[in-house]
Nucleic acid binder design. Sequence first.
DNA 1: TTTTGAGTTGTTCGA
DNA 2: GTCGAACAACTCAAA
Length: 464
Amino acid sequence: MPLAIWWIRRDLRLSDNAALKAALRDGFAPLPLFILDPRLLDNHFTSPRRLGFLFANLRALAADLEARGAYLLVRRGDPLVVLRRVLAESGAVRIYAEEDYTPYARRRDARVARDLPLVQVLGLTVHHPTSVRKPDGSPYTVFTPFSKAWKALPLPLAGAGTPLPTPWPSLPRLAGDPLPEIPPPAAFPAGEAAAQARLRAFLAAAVYDYAEARNRLDRDGTSRLSPYLRFGLLSARQVVQAAQEALTRAADPAARRSVETFINELIWREFYHSILYHFPQVARMAFRPDYRDLPWRTAPHDRQAWQEGRTGYPIVDACMRQLRQEGWMHNRGRMIVASFLVKDLLINWQDGERWFMQNLIDGDIAANNGGWQWVAGTGTDAAPYFRLFNPVLQSRKFDPEGHFIRRYLPELAVLPTEYLHAPWQMPREVQERFGVRIGRDYPAPLVDHEMARARALAVFRRSE
DNA sequence: TTTTGAGTTGTTCGA
DNA sequence: GTCGAACAACTCAAA
């Protein structure tokens, strides 16, 4: 049986793997290879925690492969050099990989494809960025029409294609490089089975209350699937297909709406991958040209206080500490802290984008960039005028009893709920009574929101 | 070409 | 406490 390299990048799964299926369909024995690319291990977006999650999942994939009589070859180095060498050592005659749309991935793959027999297949997203287009062929830049066109396309079936061979065809045993030892994150168990279990658990119950519960910081109402989608422990179409099956089991219109809301979130993911594909410059600058030169504040101390969760706004600080502790942040929290950095502190959204990438287990260039530009109002949104979150209102609305704040800010846990969202409003004697003195036991607010709101509106209005 | 309707997730104000 | 309008008039997509 002829041999082909199955070049694994962000598709760490055996089920519904388009690259693996294509290699088998074409009659090849797939040699699984993961390349530790120095440029991905060390750049300004690198996150040790995300690498820890990646390596844990690579170990899980290696175990799954060994259970099938195969193994995972890990090599460190420049992808083109590694691939050329593994082709020579193994006698493989082709390379199969799932297509990736970040600017770096596209440069890398184009370079490889010039010299080596690389076959790229669709798999990162359900539909290719060039498949979802306006009638005139140009890409959408507004979500709602994009989502309508996306939904109008037929959904490819995740179960379709070649089944996995048992046992795996025999492979030449090549020597690999070791995976770096980084402790894996506790909150997200590694491996394809864990990812499938998480998906099943979510679709069995929580998805039917998703529309409302997903906004609550104090509840476990989100899917928590983002790290698994980030590294392809699940394929996007497996998740969409499973969600559509859940849709048929919805008991009432509210439950239906919830499942549809969840599917919409998956389409947002596709939308931002499409934006990055068609407008790669968004990775370096604002999507909207008129917002590329805003008068951002250079405020290293404010920025550091934001990073460390010391802004004096409990909801912001609790979210930022959740990020540092767990490598993950609730979606509502991401919007709140992003709005605070960009609008209240007037600090460049790209600083926040980088901090998120350096800390998020699920950090993905397309989705992270899209989210930041959406909050900043510099992105693909046609009507961003007054998108400016009030941190106290958001706090009262989405953490009404303060359970979330108390969990991540133990120094405030003793406070009655009425003071928890805006503790600087406590009279001095109340501060003394609870032992929480503003400015000593907990920071005073970094900025006054009313002042900051007026300042941000003026700045964003001026630069049109 | 022109026109029209609509745009993830908000906030404030006043009735 | 709730609700609708105003915010300020932009940009995109589609008819």
